[in-house]
């Protein structure tokens, strides 16, 4: 769950310093990378949906 939140804020690009501290203590790099790749896939899926909705 924490990894998801980290990645979400990562895409947005801004994060609270305090949260970073907790992330750095609790998260494994593999978790963040996996969440990042899934996040990218979700990003693509959302864009595709938007495109479909716009072109209909």
């Amino acid at each position: 769950m924490r990894a998801w939140r980290t990645v979400f804020w990562g895409f947005f690009g801004v994060r609270r310093g305090r949260d970073l501290e907790r992330d750095a203590a609790n998260l494994k790099p593999a978790q963040v990378i996996a969440a990042g790749l899934v996040g990218a896939a979700v990003f693509v899926a959302v864009l595709l949906l938007v495109v479909r909705w716009v072109t209909q």
């Binding site: 980290t6 804020w9 990562g10 690009g13 996040g39």
Partner: peptide, 19 residues
């Protein structure tokens, strides 16, 4: 300012750059 967000921003730029 925003060291962590700089790291995250760099990583997301890298991922998005493939799309």
């Amino acid at each position: 300012f925003g060291y962590a967000s700089m790291v995250y921003a760099t990583a997301s730029i890298a991922i998005l750059s493939f799309l």
